[in-house]
Design a protein around this nucleic acid. Sequence first.
DNA 1: GATTGGCACTCGATGATCCCGAGTGCCAGA
DNA 2: TCTGGCACTCGGGATCATCGAGTGCCAATC
Lengths: 340, 340
Amino acid sequence: MLDDRKLEVLCAIVEDYVRTHEPVGSKTLVERHHLGVSSATVRNDMAALEEDGLIAQPHTSAGRIPTDKGYRLFVDNLTGIKPLTRAEKRAIATFLQGAVDLDDVIHRSVRLLAQLTQQVAIVQYPTLSRSTVRHVEVVALTPTRLLLVLITSAGRVEQRVVELPTPLDDDVISDLRARLNVAAVGQRLVDAAHRVSALPETFRPPDVAVIAQLVAVFTEAVADERTDEKVAIGGTANLMRFGDEFDRSIKPLLEALEEHVVLLKLLGEATSPSTVTVRIGHEVPHEQLGAASIVATGYGPGDRTLASLAVVGPTRMDYPGSMAAVYAVARYVSQILADA
Amino acid sequence: MLDDRKLEVLCAIVEDYVRTHEPVGSKTLVERHHLGVSSATVRNDMAALEEDGLIAQPHTSAGRIPTDKGYRLFVDNLTGIKPLTRAEKRAIATFLQGAVDLDDVIHRSVRLLAQLTQQVAIVQYPTLSRSTVRHVEVVALTPTRLLLVLITSAGRVEQRVVELPTPLDDDVISDLRARLNVAAVGQRLVDAAHRVSALPETFRPPDVAVIAQLVAVFTEAVADERTDEKVAIGGTANLMRFGDEFDRSIKPLLEALEEHVVLLKLLGEATSPSTVTVRIGHEVPHEQLGAASIVATGYGPGDRTLASLAVVGPTRMDYPGSMAAVYAVARYVSQILADA
DNA sequence: GATTGGCACTCGATGATCCCGAGTGCCAGA
DNA sequence: TCTGGCACTCGGGATCATCGAGTGCCAATC
């Protein structure tokens, strides 16, 4: 059923349509791509491809455009990830080099990815739940007010202000700080929360209640889903390029982009490192993004996956290019995290 | 020259045009607003207003639209800031209530402001240069690798990893930490940097060079403009509502929004708290934002101004509403910062 | 059997034309 | 100073004809 040549025709259609964004007809197709056959043959193939639901025509007597299913086949047929040019690699390296901060790394990555792909980029912060504790700090702001600071291995910093019913002595605080660190440092956050929750009992009676409260804040912060996952978005300006035509599908998309919660679900599933996940059109598990595709992958130091990053765009996007960019940026970010 | 009624006509034109977004003619004007005069009279007034450059007609035989100068006069003639409804106030309060973090406060504020005004919102993080040091922390990641954490009074956290040529003893680090805090806590950041730079000399010779390097990182981080100023943006989805018509002016605007540097200049000037600054069209000091207006104000605990927040939109925006929202959100954020 | 050239047909896009009506300026009269 | 009336303008929408890229199908050919 699916000839080698039919596949070739499909790919040609996808490429042309992605580039020109106009339905592509049999004649222009044989002109641009040197398939060694005539337009009539291509027409026959097109009819077959349409039969299989891989392409469609918006109106009778117009050219064909790929369907979601067509894009899917096209993507599945890509052999590996297209390597970036040397210039692109250098661009990535220099762009990410000066990063000074985890925040800085994330934001630079987002902008870089947006610029490389000319689409909307999303980078998730390293999830707390998959990180380990690097350091815990307790700072007395006032006698009854403590600042609890948690630094993860990936460099994320979480802080909470805790109001105490009664003041704590400075040496109790020092003691607490030391024990918190002993209990938590190096542990995954869930384990740390568990071990920390046993701490209050080891203090003298009058302080137990106060410290229990403080510890509760700690475990709560760790367990909270909303703080667990956090994303940065960039390149929304690139959505403008599809102005008129995507008018109705672009607005909900942008709105969805601001509803970070939605994104996290999308990213949450694409977590394998060194594998790039592509979701096309209706495959995206969100009804409002029907005309959008997502190219995502995981990143993290070594082979562990801490979080995901992705590119979102219209179904008619440059899949090979986006996949290459996503993959490359993920690798660089992973390396930076491994170094830091 | 500028009759009371002419002013009234101008305001009516502005209001109508902002609402309908269509050039408004004399007839429809007298229908909607019950000015006690006929359309012919309004026509005469309109001619005068056009003479003064306050309104213009896009084409002959079309209605009038306000010019930048017209909007300016309209805004200058507003008496005070329109108070928000009780429901809006409650919405603000509940929206910002659960904030747990400075980051959280900023992001919630941006989204809130965007939602209230249906425009693009920008909130600047409390500038480092105007903050004081709350706490300095030094964490040894490895023997030759320190993490320097700086927490400001407003809750901003800056961190830097420092590579050391030679390791430092734990007690030297403790000593350093203590002295850093003594020298810096409570100081404005510039002063802190100054005082901290005198520290290395007080250590024993072998450590002086190492500590000098560490201190250099500290002062550098404080002095760096890029880390000094930081902004969050939200509501870009709202730009879509002006799709076709603002097509050419909307794209550069969105791009400018991602070039944070530009924004900081815009915000940098609107720093008086309790005063709302409005920049209309060409008044905006950036050539690419010719068709945009900015409504900005400062915020900060008490009467000190730590940073700015603003709303950006097309010149034909709801100035009274935006001003009210900006003002209200700034007040709430200020209060939260004062509490924290 | 696959491929090709030819042909009639479809239908969206483009351009020309016309018409309408909201809006204007101006002027004479109240 | 305001108002009613009137002639004039001109952009937007509707209508219609044309054009051409594209299709499906069929008979002829390799």
